[in-house]
Computed example of a mutant assay.
Amino acid sequence: MIVFATGFALLLAASQGEVYVARGDTLVISGTPIRLHGIERPQNSRKEAETARQQMQRIIEGSFVTCGISDKRIGHQRIGTCTANGEDIAAAMVASGHALDCERFSEGRYRALEPKGARSRLVPSQQCEK
Results as ranks from 00 to 15, higher is better:
60 I>E: 01
75 G>E: 13
52 A>N: 05
32 T>V: 15
78 R>Q: 12
48 E>S: 15
89 I>G: 00
52 A>E: 04
39 I>P: 06
99 A>E: 05
58 R>E: 15
105 F>R: 10
100 L>M: 06
72 K>N: 11
68 G>F: 13
74 I>A: 09
24 G>S: 06
95 A>Q: 11
96 S>T: 10
47 K>E: 15
46 R>F: 08
47 K>I: 04
39 I>K: 09
66 T>S: 12
88 D>L: 01
87 E>Y: 09
46 R>G: 15
38 G>Q: 06
47 K>A: 14
72 K>G: 00
45 S>N: 08
25 D>G: 07
57 Q>G: 11
88 D>M: 03
56 M>P: 03
75 G>H: 04
61 E>I: 01
37 H>S: 07
100 L>V: 10
42 P>C: 10
107 E>G: 13
74 I>N: 07
103 E>L: 09
88 D>H: 00
31 G>E: 00
79 I>R: 09
46 R>D: 11
42 P>D: 13
96 S>A: 15
86 G>H: 11
73 R>Y: 05
48 E>V: 07
55 Q>S: 08
87 E>H: 11
106 S>H: 07
77 Q>G: 07
52 A>R: 03
56 M>K: 08
105 F>L: 05
41 R>S: 12
58 R>T: 14
44 N>M: 03
46 R>K: 11
93 M>F: 02
34 I>C: 05
47 K>Y: 14
85 N>S: 13
100 L>C: 04
56 M>F: 05
31 G>Y: 02
57 Q>M: 04
35 R>G: 07
101 D>M: 03
98 H>D: 04
95 A>V: 07
73 R>K: 12
56 M>Q: 06
68 G>T: 11
101 D>K: 00
43 Q>S: 13
24 G>T: 05
